[in-house]
Amino acid sequence: MLRRKQFWFAIMAILPTFAIFGWVRLFPIIETLRLSMHEWNLLSKNKPFVGFQNFIELFSDNQFMDALTNTAVIAFGAMAVTIPMSMVLAAIIYHRTRSRFSGFYETAVFIPHVVSLVPAAMAWKWIFDAKLGPLNAIIMGLGGDALPWLFDPVLSVICIIFLVSWQTLGYGVLIYLVGFRNLPKSVFEAAQLDGANGFQSFLYMSVPLLKPITLYVSVVTLISGFNVYAQAYVLASDTQGAPGRQVRVLVLDMLENSFQNFRVGYAAAEAVILLSIVLLLTMIQFGLLRGKGGR
């Protein structure tokens, strides 16, 4: 009797959340999958079924391939910068936990992560500006040639990697700090007694012991890298905001196909590809964790 009362309370209490969830998460997700197999130009009432036609077309679409390449380069580039830097930085901050500045360190490293994307991108935009920015001023001061940072397609991708890494670094440091605090102290004391110096115990003990954390941060960084949009929107449009100069990334290409070219089904197919990439990355993470026997 009591159990039945509890059951009905649980159902009634979770129902509102579950209903909202179905409405704003489950339904649009299923709709994305469905639309990716259909053709829909926004205006016409009928949405003919086209099977995998959208996907086949995507892989011969230069703009999409361009977007996919750029996005992948940005995601992996940002990860390659963020992981080693945040690990070393967290190691030093952890080592100086008792320093009276440790609060300042943590705050300063984390601020770029909490500043909203657009003001942060504005800050970097001026630094990278070819004609007015301090970066070229420094390069020229050192005797180099000014570079068209935000106009050259390769350089602007590098700029976006820089901006994304600067923002992710604080997150990485934070998670690694949690990791360092959870490491068994005794192992390190033993290593110290055996004469290992700080650098050696970092390289041969912390790095392998923190592998699960590294895996987690890598996957989170990669997934957020694949969703990059605001950074490209602000940074790589020229000062007049002409959209033609934007670095093409997946989300941008998707929105353009949907709202400018009126090809919603086609855009949904892109979304499904984005989803598959994210699922694949997550599965690799779980697979590697299980392969290592967890921790």
């Binding site: 649009p28 997700i29 994305t32 969703n227 979304a271 989803l275």
Partner: peptide
């Protein structure tokens, strides 16, 4: 709830827009 946690918002925001 958990299964949808890893799906980025960007994936399903276009159908949500039409809703």
């Amino acid at each position: 709830f958990l299964a949808t946690a890893i799906i980025p918002f960007e994936v399903y925001m276009i159908p949500l827009y039409f809703q």
